[in-house]
Every structure is written in C-alpha cells, then in structure tokens.
Design a protein around this nucleic acid. Structure first.
Lengths: 166, 166
DNA sequence: GCGGAATAGTCAAACGCTCAACTACGCTAC
DNA sequence: GTAGCGTAGTTGAGCGTTTGACTATTCCGC
C-alpha cells in the first residue's frame, strides 16, 4: 500500500452505482485486460528474458533515428515514472543493452542510448511478442471488434492523456 | 526480470507483423488500459489507503453469503497467485480487516473471513471507486462504446479464461 | 551577473510480487 | 494402516516499483 488516507470528503450525494450491465461490462473489460497483459508479459519474459516493460523501453529507443532518447521523454513514452525508468535503465545497462550519455544541449539531461547488443536482443524478442499479440488478441477478434477496440482506446486516451493523441 | 531465456525455437516462418492500423489499435488499447488502471488505482489508494488489488479481495469476500471464502477460490476470483493472495491476506489481517479460519470440511484449507472493520472499510472505499470508474470510463463513452467494450471483454475472456464466462 | 524557482535525474528505504521450496493434510490402492 | 501422490496454503529470498529526499543544472526576473 502506497499512501495514507487523505482527509478529502466523500463525494457528496448518493454514489452513482453501476447497474448490472455496467458491472458486467466493467468486469469483463478489467479481467480480460489483466489476463491479456499478464499472459503476454509472462510469455515474453519466459522466452526472451525481457519483460514487457523493458521491451517497451527498447522499442521506444529503436524507433528513434539515433536510437537514443532523453530519460524524461522515454519515461513519458513508456508510461513510466522517472524513478522507475532510471532503475530500469540501470538494469538494462548492466546487460549491456543500453548506455547512458550526457546530453550536450542540457547539462542536467541524460540520454539513454540503445547499443547494438540491445538492438539485437530486441530483434530476437519482437517476433515472440508479435506472435503473442496476434494469437491472444487479433486472432480472437473480428475486424469490427478491432475497430471498436481502437475507437475505445482512442476515446479513453483523449480523456486520460490528450497529449498522446494527435 | 523473472526468468531465464528458454531454449524454445523462434516461431517458424516470417512473423506476422502488425500493419499500421493494427499497431494503432494495439497501442491505443494498451496505453488506455494502463493509464486507466493506474489512475483508478492511485486515486483509490491515495484517498482510502486501499489499493485496487486489495479492494478486489474485500469485494469478493463481501459478495459471499457468509463473507468468507477459501483461499484458493479467492485467489482465482482475484486473478491472483496463491502466494500473492497469502501475502495480501496477511497484510489485511494486520489491519484487522480479514481473519483466517481453518476450514471444517478440509483440514488443509483456510477460510479468509471479512471482519466488520473490513466491511466498513469497503463501504467507505466503494463510493470513491465507483465515482472513479464513472468519471474516467463510463462518462467518456457513448452507450454503443460501452456495449462494444463489453463485447470485446467477453470475447477475450472466452479465449483467455473460459471458466470465467458463463 | 545573481538569487530563487523550476527541471532532470538519481538514490535509498519500504513495500509488494514472484518463484521455488516447504509443511500439512487428504485420497487411493495395496 | 501405510506408501505414494496430489492438493492447499505458507514462507523467505530476490527483484522491481514507489516514495520522497537529494544533487546538479538551467531558466527567469531583476
């Protein structure tokens, strides 16, 4: 548990409880999301030694022209706190997949740079990951469901983090 | 990282890479799912001191006639490993919200029992949680999107864990 | 230029989860 | 009745994440 109880008042008025259909929709979505992420993460970790969180870091770096990115930008891109990313990059550094480099333009900044070994590790993991996503997700859905999934995700993203949506 | 690399061969043949639309659908869903769960969990934890994982345990117990459940059943219900649940119940016990009780019918078994204090804690947290789910999720979606979300969740659930779907 | 606020990143301690080993009990067959 | 196996649950070590404090650098107004 991460925090003590705040003194904020409860919401005023009667809570807007979920009705039976809303309950079912919420639970189906929540459980399927957790199961899917868990299954993909476990398969990737087991077969490649790279957790999904670390995979995302490697992908983000690889998609950049110079295969390097500022720590903060990388943290945002990976939905990670700065502290978490800092720890993660330290561990990736130990594996020789990433190295740190001071930022020229800003003396406070650090660049995380993907090494050749890191890129090779990513190349090895990518087929495993994409096959998992296909098998567990896309192969299970009709095209309309894929469209609905995207619409759902983008709608939510516009609300939760507009900066991430063009 | 949780495991060493297995000797399994890579998938045979060219990986079925995602096309641009599939990429967008996948990323939109993944990021929105992570942001939503993270935001709800943080708000709940900050304002009530109960993480979403612990909240689920309390809910599961409260929905049972006697407010008690076998450890394994509770673990399944909460998508938790037995070890994780055992640790969690120990911490909930320290707070006085749950107590353990040996199972009459099966001497190996333990029952997790929700205490009055635990029930009260849940009653305090539930309005916070439901307001969060409304505000961040249902208020953002049109009725068709809610229907699609449910359809999506149930379709995936049938694949990932059929036993959870009637 | 200079002092104060803001930003970038790191670090240590506390906490929760995973993994694998372990205890204890039940079930079945002999 | 007891050996062997399967099931229920717990435990401890190791790892990753969170939190908050900390250092270093830059930005801004004067």
């Amino acid at each position: 548990m991460r925090a003590s109880v705040s003194p904020e008042p409860l919401p005023t008025g009667e809570p807007r409880w979920l009705d039976v259909d809303e309950q079912k929709a919420w639970r189906a979505w929540l459980y399927s999301a957790q199961l899917l992420q868990d299954r993909l993460d476990r398969e990737l970790t087991r077969r490649t030694g790279i957790s999904h969180a670390y995979y995302e870091i490697l992908v983000a770096l690889s998609e950049t022209p110079e295969r390097m990115m500022r720590m903060s930008e990388l943290a945002d891109r990976c939905l990670s706190s700065r502290s978490r990313l800092s720890h993660a990059v330290s561990r990736l550094e130990e594996r020789g997949w990433v190295r740190r480099q001071v930022c020229e333009e800003d003396g406070r900044g650090q660049l995380a740079v993907l090494t050749e070994e890191g890129f090779a590790a990513l190349e090895g993991a990518a087929p495993i990951h994409v096959e998992g996503v296909r098998r567990e997700l896309f192969d299970q859905l009709a095209p309309e469901q894929v469209a609905a999934m995207r619409d759902f995700g983008e709608t939510l993203l516009r609300h939760l983090d507009p900066s991430r949506m063009p």
